[in-house]
Design a protein around this nucleic acid. Structure first.
Lengths: 264, 264
DNA sequence: CAGTGGTCTAGACCACATG
DNA sequence: ATGTGGTCTAGACCACTGG
């Protein structure tokens, strides 16, 4: 097959990859071929040979490049997806994700402050704000009857336009009779706290639990399903000790580091 | 548990699995077959139909049971390995792991206390105790010249005989001139602290970062390589503020929940 | 429509652990 | 020597996305 360069409109054919693919593989069973391909790709991505955001050649083309079967090629690609370096979109292609920035999410800051401290442009999309039956944990935490209503909010945080953090919050309605109005005005939960007469609050407890992204989480965060994620549950309390927020967050595992230090 | 590491030779044919395998699959493309098999297996394991520690039928046999190709079967099995429910050993078989207990590892306790609080039998194996050049982070933390020697210790924690936590510690030698002797006598790092005139210490900082197990980590912890794990870095300081320990821990992601609360 | 990634099959060879 | 899981291939069909 002569590689006739028909007018490819975009991705520049990635000559870097071709070079990588030419080296012979290490003796068999030394390391699996798919792992060797994985490492070569990792190096190419890490060194920036393939630009973040750019589209890779198709799987079949890559498989030809590296002279392996498509299935073998897919194993290398799949591992990179697990680690957050690549992102495949069905019917579209495989893309190099923005270099996974490691956010330091500090227990003594709001997440927004933690993110902003890193120098990126953070934006927020409120996906959902309504009233719904409390989750079991929220009901217990807020001292509500099972099935009682809470204020529910889903928000997506984006860094330079790319989804980076999904949070699902519940609030006790008794404390926030005007939640929707206050939030609409400020767009800030801390402002809602203030408006409700809670000038200060404290992060009373934070729990971290690893898992694999559900289909829904993966879709919202732009991840491959079953990618490892961090589930972070945080409880905020008012100075009087009452719980005022239960927050369940979800981060791509590869792009966050949680930092807990003893003083604020 | 009376389930000693000695292998019971009888896999018992797992009639439960046969029953699961008989149900027809959902209409095509509703959910992938391998995912359906995955869910059936998950349910069987969760309900205890297949005993923890027991050996599953071989892959070929399983593939026959579920009437799919071996590759397809392997996808279902692989996901369970990622989630810590199954563990494959080459040349041996696939085993059901002990039900993943979720340890609450609290920032205000030693890990040992966190574990013991859960009611399991915790044992410790000291894998390594020597002096070696400091890691970059340890040198900076302890204020040593790059390449200076530190005391290095690797320990493995086991719950009921099963590996559950790997820790790799570094200590500044100046603070602990008799580390080896003190540790040999007590087997406890806290006791070494005391013997060195540090009756109290504080966990100054804890960092949590998800990742995939390296080959070495996987081997020590009895995991499939590239299984998701939690890397926990902790810094202990003496009352005078000086760092006395840098600890890098590694947990199977599926079996730990890290809890940080504001008061001890 | 054409091209993409996602799934599935049938068969093969290998390295490894066990008896 | 046997059976195990790990790897790899060749070819096929599907669902989805985009122009």
């Amino acid at each position: 097959m002569s590689d006739a360069p028909t007018d490819h409109p975009a991705p520049a054919a990635h000559p870097e990859l071709s070079a990588l693919a030419l080296e012979p593989y290490a003796p068999k069973a030394q390391r699996a071929i798919w792992l060797q391909i994985y490492h070569r790709l990792a190096e190419a991505i890490e060194r920036g040979c393939v630009a973040p955001g750019s589209k890779l050649p198709g799987e079949v083309q890559l498989a030809e490049l590296f002279a392996v079967n498509r299935i073998t090629m897919r194993r290398a690609l799949a591992l990179h997806q697990s680690e957050g370096r690549l992102q495949a979109r069905k019917g579209v292609g495989i893309f190099v994700r923005q270099k996974p920035r490691h956010f330091e999410v500090r227990s003594d800051m709001t997440f927004a402050d933690s993110l902003a401290a890193d120098g990126g442009v953070i934006s927020t999309r409120t996906l959902l704000l309504d009233r719904a039956p409390a989750s079991a944990e929220a009901a217990r935490l807020f001292g509500l009857a099972p099935g009682a209503e809470v204020i529910r909010m889903h928000r997506l945080r984006l860094l330079d336009g790319a989804p980076i953090y999904l949070s699902r919050k519940e609030f006790p309605p008794a404390r926030f009779p005007r939640f929707e109005a206050d939030y609409a005005q400020s767009g800030s939960v801390v402002a809602v706290y203030r408006a409700a007469g809670i000038p200060h609050y404290r992060r009373a407890e934070t729990r971290v639990r690893g898992g694999l992204a559900s289909r829904e989480e993966a879709e919202i965060l732009g991840l491959t399903p079953k990618t490892p994620v961090q589930h972070v549950t945080a409880i905020n309390r008012a100075p009087d000790g009452a719980a005022i927020e239960l927050n369940r967050g979800c981060w791509p595992m590869a792009s966050v580091e949680l930092v807990f230090s003893e003083d604020g």
